[in-house]
Design a protein around this nucleic acid. Structure first.
Length: 492
DNA sequence: TTGGGG
């Protein structure tokens, strides 16, 4: 047939990448192994854009960046890093002193995608056009690339870079890349926007509250608590790893196309590229910007393996389990009688399957309620007071709520009754409005606990304390679960 | 055209 004949005669000539990159302003054909691939996203123009880095044996560091513009339903959808892509009629350009290739089907570009594994067939799993050719020449190139790739792990080419950060090192000053696992995708948020929750096994550094955000209510602890709008229901948290900060990423613009929105799946490892972050109500949030991208990562890549190995190590080590920004060895102005008990994260406390349990935690006390030490003690209800013999003497009891924080969550806990008397060491519950000396002593303790400083924002120190969980209603133990401090003293 | 480690 004439068409077949034509193909054989006009067999495509494929450039090695090292040869292609010097053909600036020319259209070339080449094969490459996909070393990085970022999901398609919309542009200000009509097309979508997806980007990738391709390598071959002639050009493997840093590889060739490829930009492909096309309608959403004509985008290359790379299954996994290491797959092979073939481009026809792709335009070579130079940008910022580096070569790049621009593909656009409107100007003749086409592609096929196939597995990069030795022994797999030669049938593309995706092709931009129904007519395409795979000839003996193509099979030879594919074989060569597959053989070479089998001894050259892809992530040694394009895995890490100077922008890569771990969650423990993020700050609001700069943009960065993150290799992380998607733990949860919340699609219930605003129209066409989802919040994804990511994790890499490390802990964010303690963040200061933005002073501008304060003063929304007279209960700072409640303000911190309500920031949990980005935090998640306990049932969702139950599926999370017990250590490491879960970082919300907002807002996440979802690219729509014929095959539905490209929403990453919980459980996927991804490389977030060029994201930012901010601090809201003292919690870090990743920000997915217009210029941010989601890159695919194979679970077998080195970066992912490193995260998982480090996490397993943290799990098994009493020291590594501690918050990563807590001084080592930990120093605590609070003393417990249970220092031999394993330290639990607040996520473990919140998700523990038994409603009633005891824990030891390493936390920071972010707020108290009441805020004024003067109100820490309240009159005992008469029914439980000493009796009607001494009504004017009126027994008092401590009733305080602390807002605790660690890298995994926040928790409201109560300090009540004898536990509070033990806690404050030497200051029994009294009518504080009649006891100025006690008020002064308590205030000094609380200020130390909250890290109040003359200059600048508070910076609460890490302290260890014992928590007990209980319920208010036997019929609904999970719904009425509460926490209180016990077995913890604040001497001095 | 679009966007490009900005």
């Amino acid at each position: 047939m004439s068409i077949e004949l034509h193909r054989v005669q006009g067999k495509y000539n494929y450039d090695r990448l090292a040869d292609a990159v010097v053909c600036v302003d020319k259209k070339v054909n080449f094969y490459g192994i996909v070393a990085e691939y970022e999901q398609p996203k919309s542009t200000r123009g009509d097309d979508c854009l997806c980007t990738m880095t391709v390598v071959d044996m002639s050009y493997n560091t840093p590889g060739l960046r490829v930009l492909y513009f096309a309608p959403a339903d004509q985008m290359p959808r790379v299954n996994t890093v290491g797959d092979i892509i073939r481009f026809h009629r792709i335009q070579m350009r130079s940008h910022a002193d580096a070569p790049q290739a621009i593909g656009n089907p409107k100007y003749g570009a086409s592609f096929v995608l196939l597995s990069g594994l030795e022994g797999d067939g030669y049938e593309p799993y995706q092709k931009s056009h129904s007519r395409y050719s795979v000839e003996a020449h193509d099979r030879d190139i594919v074989d060569l690339l597959r053989t070479w790739a089998s001894s050259h792990p892809i992530d040694t080419f394009a895995g890490t870079n100077k922008y890569m950060k771990q969650i423990k090192d993020i700050n609001v000053e700069s943009y960065f890349d993150l290799c992380c696992k998607i733990l949860y995708v919340n699609e219930q948020s605003a129209e066409n926007s989802v919040i994804i929750y990511v994790w890499d096994g490390t802990d964010t550094s303690p963040a200061c509250l933005n002073p501008v955000e304060q003063g929304e209510s007279d209960d700072p602890g409640q303000d911190l608590w309500s920031a949990k709008e980005l935090a998640l229901p306990v049932d969702v948290m139950r599926s999370f790893p017990v250590l490491g900060t879960v970082l919300p990423l907002v807002p996440f613009d979802v690219a729509e196309d014929d095959s539905g929105p490209q929403i990453p799946l919980a459980g996927d490892w991804v490389k977030l590229r060029n994201i930012g972050c901010r601090i809201r109500k003292g919690l870090y949030e990743g920000i997915f910007l217009h210029k941010s991208k989601i890159g695919i990562l194979s679970p077998s890549t080195q970066a992912v393996q490193n995260c998982e190995r480090a996490y397993k190590e943290r799990l098994t080590s009493e020291t590594l389990r501690l918050p990563q920004w807590c001084p080592k060895p930990p120093q605590s102005m609070l003393v417990t009688g249970y220092d031999h008990v394993k330290v639990s994260t607040l996520r473990e406390v919140l998700t523990h399957p038994q409603v009633t349990n005891k824990f030891r935690c390493m936390v920071r006390v972010m707020a108290t309620w009441p805020t004024d030490v003067l109100d820490f003690c309240v009159p005992l209800p008469e029914s439980t007071a000493g009796g009607k013999d001494q009504p004017e003497q009126g027994a008092f009891v401590y009733a305080v709520r602390f807002t605790l924080e660690d890298p995994t969550g926040r928790l409201h806990v109560f300090l009540y009754g004898q536990d509070a008397v033990d806690f404050f060491v030497g200051y029994p519950a009294v009518d504080l409005r009649q006891q100025g000396d006690t008020v002064g002593a308590l205030k000094r303790k609380v200020d130390r606990l909250l890290g109040v400083s003359e200059s600048g924002p508070s910076n609460p120190p890490w302290v260890n304390c014992c928590l007990m969980s209980y319920y208010l209603d036997k019929e609904r133990p999970h719904d009425t679960r509460r926490f209180r401090i016990f077995g913890t003293r604040f001497p001095g």
